[in-house]
């Protein structure tokens, strides 16, 4: 005997959206956290307006030292003395293996900062074993120089 299926009741397809909303909220929190991190790493300064390198080297995570217009050294949003910054770089250099080119060091100096600060920092970094760095620029039409 063949029994016909019961078609009397309504069939409702329920899609449970709760896990998706959970994941999306997790993504939002992640992006908010990383955006905050980026803001701290890169201080709000006006970089020299230069095109930069035509052939970009591989970007690696490293140390970012910001130099304010007044010549302050800012790392991760906090201002530090020259000695402290050099000590941080030494730790990072050791962590990167200690080889002279191992550390990716980015200097983000304000275009109006005195070059004497860059010179003093460079001198101390060479003593610490750093043999190369990158100067941050902002692509755009010509600077004051």
């Amino acid at each position: 005997m063949r029994i016909a299926p019961d078609h009397s009741g309504e069939r409702i397809m329920d899609v449970d959206l709760t896990p998706m909303i959970d994941v999306v909220f997790l993504l939002i929190i992640f992006f908010m956290a990383t955006a905050q991190f980026a803001r701290l790493t890169k201080a709000d300064i006006e970089l020299p307006r230069e095109q930069g390198e035509t052939q970009r080297a591989e970007e690696a995570s490293g140390v970012v030292i910001n130099i304010s217009p007044a010549g302050e050294l800012i790392v991760d949003g906090d201002s530090y003395s020259l000695d402290r910054v050099v000590a941080m770089v030494k730790v990072e250099l050791k962590r990167a293996g200690g080889a002279p080119g191992a550390l990716d060091l980015l200097i983000r100096a304000d275009k109006d900062a005195p070059a004497s600060v860059v010179n003093t920092l460079a001198d101390r970094l060479v003593e610490a074993g750093v043999r190369s760095w990158r100067l941050g620029t902002e692509p755009g039409s010509g600077g004051g120089a």
Binding site: R49, A109, L135
Partner: peptide, 16 residues
């Protein structure tokens, strides 16, 4: 080589 009495934009200019 950049003298200490100029601004950083001259460092970037020379390197560029």
């Amino acid at each position: 080589r950049v003298s200490g009495d100029v601004r950083v934009e001259w460092v970037a200019g020379a390197l560029q």
